[in-house]
Amino acid sequence: MKPLKNFTNSLKSDPNEFWATVKYLGDCLGYAKRGNILVHSEKDIINQLHKAKLPINSNTITELQLYFKLRKDALETASNHLMNLEQAKTLFYELKSDPALATIVNDIPFPKNKQKGEKRAYAYFTGIINMLTAYSIISKDVNRLTNINYDPRNLATYTTHEKLVFTSSRRFDGAIPAISNPKLVWEIKEYYYTTSFGSRIADGVYETQLDGFELKNLRKSQNITIQHVFLVDAYDTWWNQGKPYLCRIFDTLNQGLVDEVIFGDEVLTEWPKIIQNVI
């Protein structure tokens, strides 16, 4: 999923005010109800703003309603791509046995999840991403396989003119070509085994927003662009339990804090395009 084309640039209202209002209304009126993502009515928006003694601008109201409708439609479409555990597992093993990866499959890391007992298994979505990353690179140039950091153990840094101008607050889940002066960084959130939408999952969304603010500031202050991609999966966790956080992810994307969000099996078509464009 990419940001809504030209939406922010076409705003007649102030973008800072618009996004602050989106967040405020989400907090006060909610993001989802009875399993449905909400599209707030003009009446509800005006009443809430009036109650808080906030300015009411007709252009902003129109833009908010359009945005809420576009958000609902986009996320409902994206939900069709989210996989459950068995679907992710099946796809993982299909890719792992693909003859195209036969010569390098032993060099691709396949981390395990953090579960215990019989739930202990491969982190299927991460493994899928790692395989597609390697495959996308060897399809262009096998010699570039070394230009992947599948699991950075350090903070991202950027150096220019022999000066360190950026250090991230958090570690990313992957980087190309390296975690030092990366062109691309990514974050993965797969939650197949969760039975409830907990604070740890919610924190993952906020952490991505923090990363996005830092990278956006780097772009503005130093004119350095690092592509930032967010990959999520687990149908039950995100769609059945976490719709409010899907809305926040969509807002994060359209605020320019993430360049692209990939949902579940979208990774098969969208991730190779991103990799091949950046190498």
Rank of each mutant, 00 (worst) to 15 (best):
2 K>Y: 14
5 K>L: 14
8 T>G: 00
8 T>A: 15
11 L>Y: 04
16 N>I: 11
19 W>H: 09
19 W>S: 14
23 K>P: 00
25 L>F: 05
28 C>W: 02
29 L>Y: 10
30 G>Q: 09
31 Y>G: 00
32 A>C: 08
40 H>A: 07
42 E>H: 11
44 D>F: 00
44 D>I: 01
48 Q>W: 00
48 Q>E: 10
53 K>W: 06
55 P>A: 10
57 N>F: 07
60 T>M: 15
61 I>N: 07
64 L>T: 04
64 L>W: 01
70 L>S: 11
73 D>T: 09
74 A>Y: 01
75 L>P: 04
75 L>M: 03
78 A>R: 02
79 S>N: 11
80 N>F: 14
81 H>N: 15
81 H>T: 05
82 L>D: 03
88 A>V: 02
88 A>R: 08
89 K>H: 10
89 K>P: 06
90 T>D: 08
91 L>K: 08
97 S>H: 05
104 I>V: 14
105 V>L: 03
111 P>H: 11
118 E>D: 09
119 K>T: 05
122 Y>H: 12
125 F>S: 06
125 F>L: 13
128 I>L: 06
135 Y>I: 07
138 I>A: 01
141 D>S: 10
143 N>C: 10
144 R>S: 12
144 R>D: 12
148 I>R: 07
150 Y>N: 03
152 P>Y: 07
156 A>F: 03
157 T>Y: 10
158 Y>L: 10
159 T>Y: 13
160 T>V: 13
161 H>W: 04
164 L>G: 13
167 T>H: 01
170 R>H: 05
171 R>D: 08
172 F>I: 08
174 G>P: 11
174 G>F: 08
175 A>M: 04
178 A>M: 08
181 N>M: 08
184 L>M: 13
187 E>V: 04
194 T>N: 14
198 G>E: 03
200 R>N: 10
202 A>Y: 01
203 D>S: 13
203 D>T: 08
208 T>Y: 05
210 L>K: 10
213 F>C: 14
216 K>S: 15
217 N>G: 03
220 K>A: 15
228 H>M: 06
231 L>Y: 05
235 Y>I: 04
239 W>E: 12
242 G>H: 03
244 P>M: 02
245 Y>F: 15
246 L>V: 07
256 G>H: 09
257 L>W: 11
258 V>E: 00
261 V>M: 05
263 F>T: 12
264 G>T: 14
265 D>I: 06
265 D>E: 11
267 V>P: 08
269 T>I: 07
269 T>A: 12
270 E>A: 14
271 W>C: 02
272 P>F: 04
273 K>G: 02
276 Q>P: 07
277 N>H: 11
277 N>P: 03
278 V>D: 04
279 I>K: 01
